[in-house]
Simulated scan of single mutants.
Amino acid sequence: MALTHEEREQFLAEPHIAAFAVDGGPGRAPLTVPIWYQYAPGGDIWIMTGLDSRKNKLIEAAGRFSLMVDRVEPTIRYVSVEGPVIDTAPATIERLREISARYLPAGKVDAYVDVAWKSHGEQVLIHMRPEKWVSSDLGSL
């Protein structure tokens, strides 16, 4: 069964690890990797990645990407969303802290942010406007 608009937005707002996909370029399969993301119902999605990363270069070339999140308990449910990149901006330590707090236990955030900010190199925020949605809840088969 397809999810309602509200159900799919609420599900996407939960802190799932997303499967990120973007066109891999000529002769390559799509680049698909796990990624943290941030989303609030009715808003845009943002991700953070290395400024010089292959992921960022492919996003710049394609102008769009997709995310898919799923779970298997208590029911089998997924949401996939695709859309255009609407903005990019240099990452800030505040945004790194925000996204880290979404996924890590509170007591681990500061240490992770300190290491990541110093060692991951220059980062960029990429904002995507959800345009196409696919969703389903298969129940507890």
Rank of each mutant, 00 (worst) to 15 (best):
Phe11Glu: 08
Glu60Ile: 06
Arg54Val: 14
Ala40Lys: 11
Ser135Val: 01
Ala21Ile: 05
Ile35Glu: 14
Ser80Gln: 13
Thr49Leu: 09
Ala19Met: 11
Trp133Gln: 09
Pro41Arg: 03
Ile126Ala: 06
His5Asp: 11
Leu138Gln: 15
Ala18Val: 09
Arg8His: 14
Gly107Ala: 06
Ile59Gln: 01
Gly83Tyr: 12
Val113Trp: 00
Thr92His: 04
Arg97Glu: 13
Val113Arg: 03
Gly43Met: 05
Ala116Arg: 02
Ala19Pro: 06
Thr49Gly: 05
Pro34Asn: 10
Leu67Trp: 07
Arg54Pro: 10
Ala29Pro: 05
Glu9Pro: 06
Leu104Asn: 02
Val22Ala: 00
Ile45Phe: 08
His127Glu: 14
Ser119Trp: 11
Gln38Ile: 15
Met128Glu: 03
Val124Met: 08
Pro41Gln: 04
Thr88Cys: 03
Pro74Cys: 03
Leu104Thr: 07
Val72Ala: 15
Ala61Thr: 02
Met68Ala: 10
Lys108Phe: 07
Ala61Met: 04
Val72Met: 13
Ala91Met: 08
Pro130Leu: 01
Arg28Tyr: 13
Glu122Asp: 13
Ala116Ile: 04
Tyr37Glu: 12
Leu3Glu: 12
Met1Arg: 12
Trp117Asn: 05
Glu73Gly: 09
Gly24Tyr: 05
Ala91Phe: 03
Gly43Asp: 14
Thr49Tyr: 13
Pro34Leu: 09
Glu131Gly: 15
Ala91Ser: 07
Gly43Asn: 11
Glu14Trp: 12
Ala91Thr: 03
Trp117Ile: 11
Phe11Ile: 10
Val79Trp: 00
Tyr103Thr: 08
Leu125Asn: 15
Glu9Trp: 01
Val113Met: 01
Asp114Trp: 02
Ala40Met: 09
Ala91Glu: 04
Ser140Ile: 00
Ala62Ile: 00
Thr4Ala: 03
Ser140Lys: 06
Met68His: 02
Met68Thr: 07
Ala40Gly: 06
Pro84Tyr: 00
Gly107Gln: 10
Val85Gln: 00
Asp87Val: 01
Ile35Ala: 07
Asp137Met: 02
Val69Arg: 13
Glu94Phe: 09
Asp87Pro: 04
Ile35Pro: 12
Val72Tyr: 12
Glu60Pro: 00
Ser135Lys: 01
Gly25Ala: 04
Leu67Arg: 13
Ile93Val: 15
Trp117Val: 11
Ile99Cys: 00
Asp70Asn: 11
Ala29Glu: 00
Gly27Ile: 02
Ser119Val: 13
Ala106Thr: 13
Ala21Tyr: 06
Lys55Leu: 10
Glu122Thr: 12
Met1Gln: 08
Lys57Asp: 01
Ala116Asn: 02
Arg28Glu: 12
Trp117Lys: 13
Arg129His: 07
Val113Thr: 01
Gly24Ser: 04
Lys132Pro: 05
Glu9Ser: 04
Arg95Asp: 08
Glu94Gln: 09
Gly43Tyr: 12
Arg28Met: 10
